[in-house]
Design a protein around this nucleic acid. Structure first.
Lengths: 153, 153
DNA sequence: ACGGAATAGTTGAAACTTCAATCACGTTGC
DNA sequence: GCAACGTGATTGAAGTTTCAACTATTCCGT
């Protein structure tokens, strides 16, 4: 059992500030999206990724990757979105194991409304309260984190 | 329906970097803690707060506040921790509605082990991959976010 | 061309979180 | 002193996520 390098006071403050701020922000965004549009953040994220894909369609595995979700979770979530009529599933031409998820017209229209509100909330509680230079730093920091986590697997 | 102020390209890049990085980091920390110690992040957070409280004891409502959890969630989570023998519950002397959660000896010993590993992982995937100035900026940014979210209620 | 290993995706059960209702106690005002 | 309201905490059910097992298809080596 080796002696750990503990965090110094400043590092600990910054880390905790991040944990608290991010948890509370995520909570708020979830509630907001749920109250106004009946969507979870995970569902919203899926709709966004689909809307940006060519033909508004992606294979499940790619969608899982872009939305940072496990495949199992994606299956369940897309099933729910399909029930709501926002997404449809169809088999892939070239690989018969594959499944394409596609944003329906209804899904696209729905997302347009949700995105307006969501962006406004993200501005109000995140973008607009952070100093522009600090925001850039946040971008750099979490890009590095994402990369490091990706390396781990 | 008013026209929203969309994010500019840089803001969007930074926001998405944050979302992706934070989701993946949270996933990794969760798995790590679960694999090595059988704890969820929520449970770990509770143990940490209790360990820092005077007498290693807090009222449920305070604990909920410090751990950024709903009271309901806390009840369930503490119930689980109680089953594992890491926390015990007792009534409050002065207010008979109140309940004190207290870290047991076993809980404290358990946490010491878990904290070593957790800190090492936080270092490896967060602290040590972020430029020190950027880390300070992250601290400032999320302090501001937490404050703004708190204002909303 | 065959068998084994890898990949894509789904499924059901268990674990966890959220939501609304509830219980118990405390506080206020009449 | 007690009725109405507020607060602290728990409960059970419904919804969501994780985990492990499973089906179907494709890839690879011989």
């Amino acid at each position: 059992m080796s002696e750990p390098r503990w965090l110094d006071a400043a590092q600990q403050r910054d880390w905790r500030a991040y944990i608290e701020g991010s948890v509370r922000l995520a909570d708020l965004l979830d509630r907001d999206l749920k109250a106004k549009h009946g969507l979870t953040t995970a569902e919203y994220e899926i709709l966004v990724r689909l809307s940006e894909a060519p033909e508004r369609r992606l294979r499940m595995a790619e969608l899982a990757e872009y939305a940072s979700q496990s495949r199992s979770r994606l299956s369940h979530t897309v099933a729910r979105l399909e029930c709501k009529g926002l997404v449809s599933r169809g088999t892939c031409g070239d690989d018969k194991r594959g499944v394409n998820a596609e944003l329906t017209e209804k899904g696209f229209a729905f997302l347009e409304q949700a995105a307006r509100d969501h962006v406004a909330t993200v501005r109000e509680y995140f973008i607009d309260v952070i100093d522009p230079d600090d925001l850039k730093a946040v971008g750099r920091a979490f890009s590095a984190v994402a990369e490091q986590v990706a390396k781990a697997r």
